[in-house]
């Protein structure tokens, strides 16, 4: 029997009827057509499917859709404020060369958002630890680590300016 759930994704509310075994990843990608969130392994090992649910970074491939009923989800599509602007994390990923094939990127960016929300000035080691549940086969991670550090600086500045104004 299908279950009716309500979820807020990137600020928009959706009502869905889902099978009890449907994952959040399937609901996002197939029901809501938000394909920016990827599926790399299905066992929670690679991090490509990471999204934020009520402030926690989770593997959407291991999260059942019914379990996010009433909750708020942020995916990569929710990062940029508009089609003309980018989130500082996205900007930094582009600028530092942190993107090659791009398949791990949305999960990495979400991990970065989660990390920087909880720790605005992470050390390099803290960034590496924050990424240790995320696999990348192209970049060797170093440019991703650099991107997150650059993004952190930029975000602190933005917040600072917002506070002042």
């Amino acid at each position: 029997m299908k279950h009716n759930i309500k979820i807020v994704v990137n600020g928009d509310e959706y009502s869905l009827a889902v099978d009890p075994w449907r994952t959040l990843n399937e609901a996002l990608r197939e029901d809501l057509n938000l394909t920016g969130t990827k599926l790399g392994c299905g066992t929670g090992d690679c991090g490509a499917c990471t999204v934020i649910v009520d402030g926690r970074a989770v593997s959407s491939c291991l999260t059942l859709a019914v379990s996010v009923d009433g909750k708020s989800v942020t995916t990569v599509e929710g990062l940029a404020p508009s089609g003309d602007e980018l989130h500082p994390i996205q900007e930094a990923f582009i600028k530092t060369g942190a993107i090659q094939c791009g398949f791990c990127t949305s999960g990495m960016e979400i991990a970065a958002l989660h990390l920087l929300s909880n720790n605005p000035s992470p050390t390099e080691l803290e960034i590496r630890k924050g990424l240790s549940g995320h696999l990348c086969r192209c970049t060797g991670y170093n440019q991703i680590v650099e991107a997150i550090s650059v993004a952190g600086e930029k975000m602190k500045k933005c917040c600072h300016e917002e506070e002042r104004s």
Binding site: T75, L79, F93, I94, K95, I99, G102
Partner: peptide
């Protein structure tokens, strides 16, 4: 020169379509 990759923005936004994204 350090020209940014032309596909980077689409990938950063999650709008780059891979085969499984196509329906």
């Amino acid at each position: 020169k350090d020209v940014p990759r032309t596909d980077a923005e689409a990938k950063a936004r999650g709008s780059a379509l891979y085969t499984d994204d196509i329906r």
